[in-house]
Amino acid sequence: MSDTEKKTTQSYLEQLKQKALSQENYGGEIKYEQAGMQVYDCPECGAGRALADGLTVCAYCGFKFMTVTLSDGIHIKKIDNS
């Protein structure tokens, strides 16, 4: 193997490495967010949501927080339907 040939491989490899590292990942870099807590009050009447009243409908004014019927999932269960 001549030196020129070694150089070809080396320079190709170096270029490939830079290309791999410098490209932006699809969709941009991942935005890391901290854990957080939020609360969703009823946008119609401002009432909060209590567990006993279920997750889907406002117990006070009937506003639909969600238009679906919940099934038995991982943490959310059928009994969470209002």
């Binding site: 935005k31 890391y32 967010e33 854990a35 909060g48 209590a50 567990l51 997750l55 943490h75």
Partner: peptide, 17 residues
């Protein structure tokens, strides 16, 4: 969803990325 032990409100907890 995590319930507040005081006011029973359903809070939404989102873990970090």
């Amino acid at each position: 969803y995590i319930q507040c032990p005081f006011c029973q409100t359903q809070n939404t907890y989102t873990p970090s990325t």
